[in-house]
């Protein structure tokens, strides 16, 4: 499973993940607190400059991640064009762009392991309350293991269906897929138990 991290190595990759996430939260809140078009325009330009500082290839990549915004930008343009509140429309559009681009920037420049380290750190106070935080990191690894397995099982079942039926399986394939998956999950639970299960006093990912 590939993460959305950028293959273009940038200066931002070297900044600690925690610092980036903290800055992101503060800036996102700030974006939603202001209504001044000039401030938001400046913020959007600053975000573009941020992407550019990592190179044009990186900027292009970032732009691709913003594609999902187009229908909404179009909607805002139509709506505010018709009602004649252009300024309000610009405020909304700029805010959407800046907030999403900023969040994507952190994702694109932070390694999965660093993100997981931040997550375990955030969860660590819960350990004192008896929550098995190691179970969380284990569960994350398991999802990464199960997802391609489910997809493969689904494809195998669809093949087996098509080998014996002229019609396409459609949603019906989900039933045997889920049944198979539940059996597999129980077997993996047994495998986990065979290797000690969820032991809470074992050190987690951080050395």
């Amino acid at each position: 499973m590939i993460s959305l991290i950028s293959p273009v190595e940038t200066w931002a990759h070297r900044i600690p993940a925690g610092a980036k996430l903290l800055a992101l939260s503060a800036l996102t809140v700030a974006l939603f607190l202001t209504d001044r078009p000039a401030v938001l325009a400046a913020a959007t330009l600053a975000v573009i400059a941020l992407y550019l500082s990592a190179g044009t290839a990186f900027l292009r990549q970032g732009a691709r991640h913003l594609r999902m915004l187009w229908p909404f930008l179009l909607l805002i343009a139509l709506w505010h064009g018709l009602t004649g509140q252009a300024q309000a429309g610009i405020v909304i559009a700029l805010r959407l762009l800046a907030a999403l681009a900023l969040a994507n920037f952190v994702t694109m420049t932070t390694r999965l392991t660093d993100m997981i380290a931040v997550l375990t750190w955030v969860l660590s106070p819960l350990r004192r309350l008896g929550l098995p935080t190691r179970a969380v990191t284990l569960a994350i690894a398991m999802v990464l293991r199960f997802t391609p397995m489910l997809v493969e099982n689904g494809q195998r079942l669809a093949l087996s269906w098509r080998a014996r039926s002229p019609r396409r399986p459609g949603w019906r394939i989900v039933v045997p897929m889920a049944a198979l998956a539940l059996d597999d999950a129980d077997h993996v639970a047994e495998a986990l138990r065979a290797r000690g299960g969820i032991l809470n006093d074992i050190p987690d990912g951080r050395n």
Binding site: M149, D184, H187, A191, L192, A194, R195
Partner: peptide, 22 residues
């Protein structure tokens, strides 16, 4: 189970049932 961890290992008939990690 803790003693078992050092004492006995088992290899399942179906490896897909055993592999936990990506």
């Amino acid at each position: 189970r803790r003693a078992a961890l050092a004492t006995v290992g088992i290899i399942f008939q179906n490896p897909d049932h055993q592999i936990i990690f990506p």
